[in-house]
Nucleic acid binder design. Structure first.
Lengths: 247, 247
DNA sequence: TGGACCCCGTACGTTTCCGTACTGAAATAA
DNA sequence: TTATTTCAGTACGGAAACGTACGGGGTCCA
């Protein structure tokens, strides 16, 4: 090993491990980290960047550090709706964890940021070597399943305002700021509602002092107030995530 | 081993294996079957029988042979909606597969039948011993996840008639008859809509010759016609199940 | 700096579905 | 059989959200 490679190695285990912000990676035992880290690559996650295409093989799993990934179910008639979001608490590529090689849903960066990615083959190899790694990934997958189930519940029973509030809270949980850089149009696509409906609802939120808005961006002002609007449509997946993954 | 026990043993591996109708159990390798079968218990699955309670430990996994289990997500305000159904193609207790010990959702027999069940500890033990068993269970869990995601899609984007048609098709897939013994009230609970709405929609189906009805029961008459109503809200989870679990 | 495009505010008629509630018919229990 | 309960049919006003569309203001690029 050259001294340059040695220095890089030191960086990897000393410096880079310390500033891993992805919660899953942060939870890895030293052994699992050693298994995984050589294959991790830091990547910028650009707004709109596609990370998974339905029915296509998954090339990488992404451990998000900042930003938010939208997972969107689509059918043949091009009906689409978001079934989950992923941020620093999780990873993309749940199908891989379940032993499948293809993506089920469309997944793309709703809010840009950065993260680390790992090629699918290396990920599978690491999972097959380490039961503890596998167990962690499965708990993460379980947390995502719970989120999807409660999205189904909200889609079926909640009103637009409740769903919108729920979405804002889930996004906020995954951001380091109160500002959510999104257009009404994109919120509408994710919720599967009209753009105009989102505009009206956000306007109502603003009048009530819950958020402030400007073109292409909104800012959470009164989070407890927004939680009140979302009611019990928000909270269970978050509590279960905590239970599964620890404080 | 007494001759009586020996006879029972012969029954288990010769006769009972042959008439396993649960698709998952039927797919097990001889080795996995040997691991699992000693712990299987044939059980009647009575209408309304509860098999999982939210946030309570899972005591048994159920391999359904006939009948249909409804998995229903619930929140604190008692909003509820079905997030998936399980029949002979699957099993209850997905959370266990994912390494959790508790049920996330309410699960109960929507349509009675019978099946086999296995105590949770024995199931976990078997999974830990056999990677191939674990892989199969995870693919089954993956199939269920896909179903839940498309339920979220249907809940958000489909009209009542489309959702109802979808539900009838999913039930039909899991029954050996065209008759679905359910009241409008229960269909309404599962879809998260008004009972009266279901009545009107079913009435419309009947007028169009898609089903016939009588008190507490409806019968599919024109399945292709019903598929047309459901459109592309039906089909993807079914195709994916086939792909994952084989013909 | 002007034009093109994107984003948001708003409007209107329409559809879908809700909440509620009353009725009669069918099944079940006494 | 009678009483009771469960289930299905129907109705009505109203809420929620839809599809569509138009115009104005921001933003970006040439």
């Amino acid at each position: 090993m050259s001294s340059e490679a040695g220095l890089k190695f030191m960086n990897d285990i000393v410096s880079s491990r310390a500033d891993v912000r992805n919660r899953l990676l942060a939870k890895l035992s030293p052994e699992d980290w050693a298994l995984v880290s050589p294959h991790l690559e830091m990547v910028a996650l650009k707004e709109r960047q596609v990370v998974e295409v339905p029915h296509k093989p998954i090339t990488h799993v992404y451990f998000v550090e900042t930003g938010v990934v939208s997972v969107v179910a689509v059918n043949q008639e091009d009906h689409r709706i978001e079934v989950g979001v992923i941020g620093k608490e999780g990873m993309t590529g749940v199908s891989l964890v379940m032993g499948d090689d293809r993506a089920q849903h469309s997944a793309y960066l709703q809010i840009g940021g950065n993260g680390r990615r790992m090629p699918a083959p290396a990920f599978l190899e690491a999972m097959s070597r380490s039961p503890s790694l596998r167990a962690l990934m499965m708990k993460s997958a379980q947390a995502f399943m719970i989120q999807t189930a409660h999205t189904a519940l909200a889609n079926g029973r909640a009103k637009l305002e409740e769903r919108l509030a729920r979405w804002l809270l889930m996004a906020h949980d995954r951001l380091n700021t109160d500002a959510v850089p999104l257009t009404h149009e994109f919120l509408a696509v994710m919720l599967g509602v009209r753009r105009a409906g989102v505009t009206v609802a956000l306007h109502s939120f603003e009048r009530r002092g819950l958020i402030s808005t400007r073109r292409g961006q909104l800012t959470l002002v009164d989070r407890p107030g927004i939680e009140k609007v979302a009611g019990s449509f928000y909270g269970i997946p978050e509590a279960e995530l905590k239970r599964l993954m620890g404080g």
